[in-house]
């Protein structure tokens, strides 16, 4: 299974599980994410979803080894419109937390930016290197990035593709908290439990999301 699920009461931990591929997103992982978040959306007993990666990092981006095997552009567009995984995650009716360690590159970073908050370990590394391989960020990255930080940082990061690190990501407003690697899981779980104590979190989430819409 390319996704592992672990439930703690009203908290669900969704783990991207392709560690040998640094959790690179291929069609199977994309479809599993879509299915998972559709189920999450309809599960009223859940309130918080934590998204993390297994192994050395969060997610190294799209799995380029499967490019060329897929459908035509017209078919891809239709599939995307019918099963838009990024939109299902962005509009998820639970509070979403990205737990980031190691690499969060390309669509890995984009995936994290669709969550409500991002908590990173001090070894996290980020980049949007798509232009260097003839592509562009297309998992919402060109829209979530300027809305999380500002247009100036977004242009710089998306056009140059330069790597940046946890401390910079915090300065830019992309990451909300940085902790040592061995404290990451405990910190994120405490954060999730704190959210559960906020009786108005749904209203606040809706208002804050709408403010950048």
């Amino acid at each position: 299974m390319c996704i592992e699920l672990e439930r703690h009461g009203a908290i669900l931990i969704v783990t991207l599980h392709r560690p040998a591929q640094l959790n690179a997103i291929d069609a199977s992982l994309r479809d599993a994410l879509y299915e998972t978040f559709c189920n999450v959306r309809d599960d009223e007993s859940l309130q918080v979803v934590i998204l993390r990666g297994s192994g050395k990092g969060f997610c190294a981006g799209a799995d380029l080894t499967e490019f060329g095997e897929a459908n035509t552009v017209l078919q891809k567009r239709r599939i995307r419109l019918q099963h838009d995984v990024w939109e299902v995650i962005r509009t998820c009716n639970k509070f979403t937390i990205a737990m980031l360690h190691g690499f969060a590159i390309g669509s890995g970073l984009e995936l994290a930016m669709l969550c409500d908050v991002r908590i990173a370990s001090d070894d996290a590394v980020f980049a949007l290197p798509e232009a260097a391989i003839g592509m562009m960020p297309a998992a919402g990255g060109t829209q979530s990035l300027p809305r999380l930080t500002n247009l100036a940082h977004a242009m710089d990061l998306a056009l140059t593709g330069r790597r940046f690190y946890a401390e910079q990501a915090w300065q830019y407003g992309i990451v909300q908290q940085i902790v040592p690697r061995d404290e990451l899981v405990r910190t994120v779980m405490q954060y999730a439990e704190h959210v559960l104590t906020q009786s108005q979190w749904r209203t606040l989430q809706r208002e804050i999301r709408a403010s950048t819409d």
């Binding site: 891809k76 232009a131 562009m136 297309a138 300027p146 998306a158 056009l159």
Partner: peptide, 26 residues
């Protein structure tokens, strides 16, 4: 296209901007 998506998207709603990004990506 990245530049166009970021700049034009900043004047659209998030959802409209995502559709614009997708079309440019295609």
């Amino acid at each position: 296209y990245t530049k166009e998506s970021i700049l034009r998207g900043s004047d659209l709603t998030f959802q409209q901007a995502l559709l614009h990004e997708m079309d440019l990506y295609m």
